Simulated scan of single mutants.
Amino acid sequence: MPTIKSSAELRNNYNEISRFCHNYSEPVFITKNGKGDLAVMSIEAYEEMNNLFELYGLIKEGMDDIANSNTRRFSEAISSIRSSRNR
């Protein structure tokens, strides 16, 4: 279940909310006038999420290559890597 706090709670209890974000590595949703306004998370959680997005992007590129038959045999790829290392 998501953690939801008001903007007043963020202003008045910043340290408590910051501690929560660092301890649980999940965002706290901040409301303003009863409506969702922000998602606050620790830098570590943000970087981890960004790293996952980058990984998912690379996996998608690979899946697209497979779908478009843009592949080569494993032995050819290894030979190419070995020859580029020996230059």
Score class of each variant (00 low, 15 high):
Asn68Lys: 14
Val28Cys: 12
Met41Pro: 06
Glu9Asn: 04
Arg19Leu: 12
Ser79Asp: 14
Arg73Met: 12
Ser84Glu: 10
Glu44Trp: 11
Met49Glu: 14
Ile66Pro: 00
Asp65Gln: 06
Tyr56Asp: 07
Gly62Trp: 06
Leu10Phe: 12
Phe74Ile: 14
Pro27Met: 07
Tyr24Leu: 04
Glu54Tyr: 10
Lys32Ile: 03
Phe29Val: 08
Lys5Gly: 03
Lys60Tyr: 11
Phe53Ile: 11
Ser25Pro: 00
Asp65Gly: 00
Leu52Asn: 08
Tyr14Trp: 15
Lys60Leu: 10
Glu61Asp: 11
Lys5Arg: 15
Asp65Lys: 09
Lys60Arg: 09
Pro27Asn: 03
Gly62His: 09
Asp37Glu: 07
Leu55Val: 08
Tyr46Glu: 08
Lys32Ala: 02
Ile43Trp: 13
Cys21Gln: 03
Asn33Val: 01
Lys35Ala: 09
Ser69Val: 07
Lys5Leu: 10
Ala77Ser: 07
Pro2Gly: 00
Arg73Ile: 04
Arg11Glu: 15
Ala67Cys: 06
Ala77Lys: 07
Tyr14Ala: 10
Arg72Met: 15
Tyr14His: 11
Tyr14Ile: 11
Ile30Met: 03
Arg72Ser: 13
Asn12Asp: 15
Asn33Thr: 02
Val28Arg: 08
Ile4Thr: 05
Ile66Asp: 02
Tyr46Arg: 06
Ala67Pro: 01
Ser80Phe: 09
Val40Gly: 07
Ser42Glu: 13
Pro27Val: 07
Thr71Lys: 03
Ala67His: 12
Asn13Asp: 14
Thr3Met: 09
Cys21Asn: 07
Glu76Tyr: 03
Cys21Ala: 12
Met1Asn: 08
Glu44Ile: 11
Met1Lys: 09
Phe29Ala: 00
Ser79Met: 06
